[in-house]
Design a protein around this nucleic acid. Structure first.
Length: 612
RNA sequence: GGGGACGUAGUUCAGUUGGUUAGAACGCUGCCCUGUCACGGCAGAGGUCGCGAGUUCGAGUCUCGUCGUCCCCGCCA
């Protein structure tokens, strides 16, 4: 192959096939950079040595497909190209065959400057010829294979589950597939194989996994596509630790096999509560320092004074946000803190009170300033600020001032600042040390229920088959009929649910499931679902639970995201061969499209024109 | 659903305060060139300035709308 030849191959005869990456025509001598999946080799065509091949080579253009037969020659020392792995050799042509011509492509795979994404997606077959894309897709293959091998070795069976299945009202919007045989009825594409994998546990398959496509009809982001691939697994008789061990096992294997990175397991662990309090986020990016509630560093009178002066609520945390090595910033810059990025969007107008001028703070409040800096271990070059909850009565009236929301807002600010000063702190740049480059984390003890403000009710935070901490069972029973009460202690119940997080990205999410029907019933009751309703939605599943269901649990990880992080890519589209745009369009095949009347009629579907 | 950025040659971009014939680089076409590797040299072709209105004597430039791509908020059990 084009990337394989080395100095040790000198003298051998070789046949190479590939694309013309570049042609350098010097008149009587023509150099062709021949490219395939593995790399590029220089082919030499000399008019004196081979006039007929030279005639053909003159006609070659970029992206023509050719076959060349020739002899591998070690290059003279002064003509070695150190920039490419095959740079010590070249192929002296004996025979050239044109296998196919190419129209002049809209952009060249060998070009350093990227065209815009619209172009890349429309001509994806050309974009995919680029080194970087070839590398990413190969990386993806290696990750998948390593995970398959490792899970197989851990005793898991790969088992397929249906794509055309049943719509369930929970969670994301479903993609629907109309049934021709039963007009008016629809299949749904799975948001995940959740119920099937639990059924497989009930069926005795003990350890299941699947690298499987999932579909969610929600808006796209850089790290979200409507169809994406999960590493889905489920096992019987697990403790939380058992599942975590399995995941740490296959991730270690994948990072080693695919990228040569030795990551350290077990991963650190943190409760959801701690993640929110210290990072303002349920998927903390551990490459940056946590926020510090500095109230503990201050005397009560000092806190009173500050709270009064800055009009802050002292029963809320006083969060110190630190960006290491961000250095001095100007007053103008300081005043814009809090006006950019995600921070200003969340929860409408700010109820966060900011103290962004450390010098002035030190001047006005020398003792608290010193204590706070010592407490948060501020280094001379750090950028830091204090954030407290505003005590404006007029703002408090419109604001949901729960501590969690306050902390989340501070967390957004922390990430905004980190992003803005990324070039200074360099915490997001790869160092080559896997312990620094890949900061894994388990976040556990998620809340069981979350309040849905639009529907004015409690919903499952994970899914309704997640089990809860045994200690919280009494709380569930005591509040089992409070689904519409926003103040219900239902919000305090902790689930045996966990996320695995890498560098601030949620890689996967899982839980220990409910295996007993009496508990499952209680959950449905707490969710305000009657027996009839539950049966209508999950009847087959509830019935299955009654036939000797073993305790079980599992997790699902986003393969695309893992590969994205390993590839150092900014977007999922860089690691998915044929992704869709933010408006869920495939620009290459031009999907979706309207379909014919005949097709619709067969399905019993009529399209209603949109209202003006 | 909301906010923001962008849209000019095949591609990446520049285009001054609204003013003559809209430029560059790469790519493309032709010619020259025996050691290039982002080859070089000469010549040339290539534009509905996303689309539609409006303001103006005059619009790539200003205004409104619309379409498309990207990023973020909401949403994503």
């Amino acid at each position: 192959m084009c990337g394989a030849l080395r100095a040790s191959d000198a003298g051998k005869k070789a046949v190479l096939m590939g694309w013309v990456n570049r042609r350098r025509d010097l008149g009587s001598i023509i150099f062709i950079d021949l490219r395939d999946r593995t790399g590029v080799t220089q082919v030499v065509v000399n008019r004196e040595l081979n006039p007929s091949a030279h005639d053909k080579a003159e006609q070659l253009r970029n992206e023509y497909v050719i076959a060349v037969i020739g002899t591998v020659k070690q290059r003279d020392r002064d003509t070695v190209n150190k920039n490419i792995p095959t740079g010590e050799v070249e192929l002296i042509i004996e025979e050239l065959r044109l296998l196919n011509e190419s129209k002049s492509p809209p952009f060249l795979p060998g070009e350093a400057i990227l065209p815009n994404e619209e172009m890349r997606l429309k001509y994806r077959y050309i974009d995919l010829r680029r080194d970087a894309m070839q590398f990413n897709i190969e990386l993806r293959h290696k990750v998948s294979k390593a995970i398959r091998d490792d899970l197989s070795a851990q005793g898991f069976f790969e088992i397929e589950t249906p794509f055309m299945t049943r719509s369930t009202p929970e969670g994301a919007r479903d993609y629907l597939v109309p049934s021709r045989v039963q007009p008016g009825s629809f299949y749904a594409l799975p948001q995940s194989p959740q119920m099937f994998k639990q059924i497989l546990m009930i069926s005795g398959f003990d350890r299941y996994f699947q690298i499987v496509r999932c579909f969610r009809d929600e808006d796209f982001r850089a790290d979200r596509q409507a169809e994406f691939t999960q590493i889905d697994l489920e096992m019987t008789y697990p403790q939380t630790d058992t599942v975590w061990g399995v995941v740490e096992g296959f991730l270690t294997a994948a990072f080693k096999a695919a990228a040569g990175q030795e990551i350290k397991a077990p991963f650190p662990r943190m409760s959801y509560d701690e993640a929110i309090k210290r990072y303002g986020n349920d998927k903390p990016d551990m490459r940056l320092p946590a926020m510090v509630d500095v109230r503990a560093a201050l005397m009560p009178e000092e806190l009173d004074e500050l709270a009064g002066k800055f009009r802050m609520r002292k029963e809320f945390p006083l969060q110190l946000i630190r960006i290491p090595k961000a250095g001095e910033i100007s007053g103008t810059e300081r005043r814009t803190i809090g006006t950019y990025g995600a921070f200003q969007h969340v929860q409408g107008p700010s109820f966060v009170q900011l103290m962004t001028d450390p010098k002035r703070f030190a001047k006005d409040y020398p003792a608290p300033s010193e204590k706070v800096q010592a407490f948060a271990k501020i280094e001379p070059d750090d950028l830091w600020l204090l954030a407290g909850a505003a005590n404006h009565p007029e703002k408090a009236a419109v604001m949901d001032q729960r501590v969690q929301h306050f902390c989340e807002k501070c967390g957004f600010l922390r990430l905004d600042l980190a992003q803005k000063y990324a070039s200074r702190h360099k915490a997001f740049e790869k160092t080559g040390d896997p312990a620094k480059d890949f900061r894994f984390l388990w976040v556990s003890d998620f809340p069981m229920f979350e309040w849905d403000n639009a529907e004015k009710r409690w919903n499952p935070a994970h899914h309704p088959f997640t089990t809860l901490h045994e200690e919280d069972m009494a709380k569930l029973e005591a509040n089992i009929d409070s689904v519409h009460d926003p103040k219900s202690p239902l919000g305090e119940i902790r689930a045996l649910a966990y996320d695995v997080v890498l560098n601030g990205t949620e890689l996967g999410s899982g839980s220990i499931r409910i295996h007993r029907q009496d508990i499952q019933k209680k959950i449905f009751q707490a969710l305000g679902m009657s027996d009839d309703e539950a049966r209508a939605r999950f009847g087959f599943f509830l019935e299955a639970l009654e036939y000797g269901t073993p305790p079980h649990g599992g997790i699902a990880l986003g393969l695309d995201r893992i590969v994205m992080i390993l590839a150092g890519a900014e977007s999922l589209r860089e690691v998915i061969p044929f992704p869709k745009t933010a408006r869920a369009v495939d620009l290459m095949v031009d999907a979706p499209t309207p379909v014919s009347e005949a097709q619709l009629k067969e399905l019993g579907i009529a399209i209603r024109k949109a209202q003006e």
